[in-house]
Design a protein around this nucleic acid. Structure first.
Length: 104
DNA sequence: GCCATGGCTAGTA
DNA sequence: GCCATGGCTAGTA
């Protein structure tokens, strides 16, 4: 596995319960600000294998990016951790975003 | 080639 | 709503 992927996985694992990070933010912390889509790719293909808290990753607008069934289960999981959604089904990032220093 | 993005602009109200 | 962005897994041979 490549370095960048390794770091992204580490960062995702470090998101505490009840907090979220955005794809772009994770990419930034991992040292490549332009690799947001990469983060989505990693989540898509490696969440199971590496037991990632995939549901704690949302987009920069505070929305769940997944569509359909995935959307519902992600929302449910986040609510179990005490995260509140507004009427537009969005999360207040100023409250729930996990702040983190750059890694490596 | 795939991906679960993000940020900026035009164009409307 | 458009489009530039970029690192590389999974699954087959």
């Amino acid at each position: 596995m490549e370095d960048f992927t390794q770091v992204v996985i580490h960062v995702i694992r470090s998101i505490p319960e009840g907090k979220v990070m955005s794809y772009g933010q994770i990419a930034r912390v991992a040292g490549n600000p332009r690799a947001a889509r990469q983060v989505s790719r990693i989540l898509h293909s490696m969440s199971k294998k590496y037991k990632l808290p995939w549901h704690r990753v949302i987009n920069s607008k505070g929305e769940i990016s997944l569509q359909g069934e995935g959307h519902a289960s992600q929302k449910w999981l986040l609510e179990q951790e005490g995260i509140l959604f507004d009427t537009a089904s969005k999360i207040d990032l100023s409250v729930y975003q996990h702040r983190m220093e750059e890694v490596m």
